[in-house]
Each structure stands twice: as C-alpha cells, then as structure tokens.
Amino acid sequence: MPLQGNLRDFSTTQLLNLMNLSGRTGTLTIFEGIPTGEKDAMQNEKMAPGEVKAKVVFKAGKLVHALLNGQASDLVAVLNKAGKLTDQQAAIIRERAKGTTDKALAVRLIGANYVTKADIVNSIQQYTLDVVYNLMSWREGPFRFEDNVLPDNDIIMVPIDLENVIVEGARRTKNDEELLNNIPNLDMALKFPENPKEKFKGIHLSVEEWRVVSFVNPKNTMRQIAKANNMSEMEIRRIVYGLQQAGLVDIVPPLGADGKRVTPAEAQSRSTGSRKRRTQPGPTKDVVTKLIDRIKSL
C-alpha cells in the first residue's frame, strides 16, 4: 500500500528519516494541495492531491534523484547551474544532443573534455540536495510514496547518504512549533542507538551538536544537557531533533541514579524537589497469569 499523507502532519525531514531507517526504494511525489471543503481528524482542511510539485527518488534508503516540477533537471541544465557549462555551451550542446539520454551525453561530454566524471557527480549531487533542502521548507502539500517505482533508466542517479541531509535540514528548521511538537518534553533523556560508531561515520556535526552528543547518557535529561551547555530550550530541541531524525540518538525516559527508569514527571520533581507521586503495590505475577489464561479463552 502506498504511504500517503500531508507535509503539514509529517514533514519532509520526517519522511527522509522514514526512507533512511526503512531502507526504502521508490518515488516520493509531493502535490499541490486542493482544498476539499472537508475537515480531517485534527480539524484541518482536508487536501486532495493536485498537480505534481516535486519528486524525490530513493534507492535502498539513499537519496538518488530529486526534481521540482517546472524546473529543468536534465544533465545540461544541472551542469549549467553548477557553472560547469556556460549558457552558450549549454545552448549548443542542447541543440546538438537532442534525443540523447543523460547517460550517453555524460559519456560524450567527458570524452570531449568538457567536464570530468567528478564534475558530473558533484553537480548532480548538489542539484539533488538543493531540491531537497528546498522541500524541507515546505509546510503543506499532500504526498504519496510508492515502493519500487523508479524513473527511466536514462537518468543518472547519484546515491547520497541521508543522515547528513537530515541534520542539515534540521539546522535550517525555523519552525519552532514543529520542534515543540516533536520534542515536547525536555525531561526525557537521550541514548545512542545500536552501533553508534557505525552511525556516526561520515557525519559532519557542528561544535554545538558535538557538545550535546558528549552528554548523551540515559541519566541526563535534555533539560540538564541544555543547562550544562548554556543552551536555550529551542536550541537544544533543534539539535536533538536533527540528531534524532538522522537516527543518531533516541529519546528515552531517564534513568535514576540507581540505574532504574524514572518517569519524566519524577525526573522533573527530582530537579525541582516538588510533586510526589503516590505509588501503589501492583498485582502479583499470579494475577497476571490468571488474566492471560482468561483472555486466551475468549
């Protein structure tokens, strides 16, 4: 079944995270939203998909291609935009290479010493990233992801690891509401996922991001990390959001000094010395086993 929704509810950054973690292959299409006059479950205007606005292609969880509707994305346009071909060269090549596929044209351009292979790879990569960073600022629009749908074989696809893209996208997030929605509670702690060394390979983090990473420990709440680094609540949220979306940290309930999990409310009360919760003796294993037997019999 296709994955569909609206960027209003599930942002581009979150979609990239989903593609990355689930190792997806397929095409994400973002549409112009057409109001239907109905409301959705959260009382927002329901939008039907209209004209295609952008397409992003993934292969095995890597970004490989992206284009905006109405913007030339052929190889000549990409190289021209990257400054590897002048306007005049681009016009001549376009005229002479009519009907030639991007792959065939790349071979000819390299052979004629117009550009190098690295020029082509870097230019395509930059073009794809520019499109995706642009998409990250979109706040609205129906989307649909279809598994295993790929563009024509003629297109040159350059794989790009998504982790850095996600971290960079989060750095550019100016929407405080999105950060608050995603990280509502700073009394939660952070922990590294499985194989953190593997995940951090090739990741380019800023000084502030490394400062937060150095405090990652299930015993430290985000509030404590922010305080230790003299960061505002929104600063720590922005950094954690990027790290989390890139799969570099997980948000977990904090551990107490005794190594036992505590609720965020307890963590808050420990730091503020307020609000004690009533604890009650729980049912025994025997009771739970009886419940299991009864439910099984239903």
Binding site: N6, D40, A41, V262, T263, P264
Partner: peptide, 24 residues
C-alpha cells in the same frame, strides 16, 4: 493509533508521552 490518518500521529505520540509521564 488510526493507521490510516497520519494527521493524528503527532497527537498519538503526544498522548503516549503524557501517559508515560503519569507512571512507569
């Protein structure tokens, strides 16, 4: 969670965190 309504996922996550905060 209503699996067919992505507009409710954020709310579902928020409710989950709220209940996690009430008790472990």
């Amino acid at each position: 969670v209503d699996s067919a309504k992505p507009e409710t996922f954020r709310e579902a996550k928020s409710i989950l965190e709220t209940f996690r905060a009430y008790a472990p």
